[in-house]
């Protein structure tokens, strides 16, 4: 059982792009955060900032998670390109994980907002852009795939 091969190729290309994006940002988070993890403070690359906003936060473990999500996407491309329906599984679960991380990071951002509203000590200087992580906005790129995978028509028939 399978689906149209040209649809499969499109899915494979899409998965490659999303997978690579997650993996690249995952690697960047690790490189930026390495110094904090080992306690020396010397990271292979400096924090990446645009207009004072941290684009890639130093977060080794978070980076590993992004790489795993990317890997899930990438694992499916071979079967997708052949038009095998099993390949959809990886797009499905990749999207699911991307959605979960989006939800968690969004919840953290909202919670920090609560801390800011109450003006607790640790949140005095918090701005929402601090919590705008790759795991959050990368999900926007993953949305079309998630839609495709979650609407059953593409793979059920």
């Amino acid at each position: 059982m399978g689906f149209n091969k040209s649809v499969g190729m499109q899915l494979a290309v899409y998965s490659t792009v999303i997978g690579a994006l997650y993996a690249v940002f995952g690697i960047l988070e690790i490189l930026v955060g390495w110094g904090d993890l080992v306690g020396t403070g010397n990271s292979p690359i400096a924090p990446l900032e645009i207009a004072g906003v941290n684009i890639v936060p130093p977060d080794v473990f978070g980076g590993v998670m992004l790489i795993i999500i990317g890997t899930v996407y990438l694992t499916g491309i071979k079967q997708q390109s052949k038009g095998e329906r099993e390949g959809i599984s990886f797009l499905f679960v990749g999207s699911l994980l991307a959605a979960i991380f989006f939800g968690v990071y969004l919840a953290i951002m909202l919670a920090n907002g609560v801390g800011y509203v109450f003006q607790f000590e640790d949140w005095l200087e918090w701005i929402w852009l601090d919590d705008l992580r790759p795991g959050l906005w990368l999900f926007l790129t993953a949305l079309p795939g998630a839609y495709l995978a979650f609407t059953k028509k593409t793979w059920r028939e």
């Binding site: 968690v104 919670a111 920090n112 609560v114 801390g115």
Partner: peptide, 10 residues
């Protein structure tokens, strides 16, 4: 992450 970071202000 959810349990720790999202609960801190509470």
């Amino acid at each position: 992450r959810f349990a720790y970071d999202a609960s801190a202000p509470f």
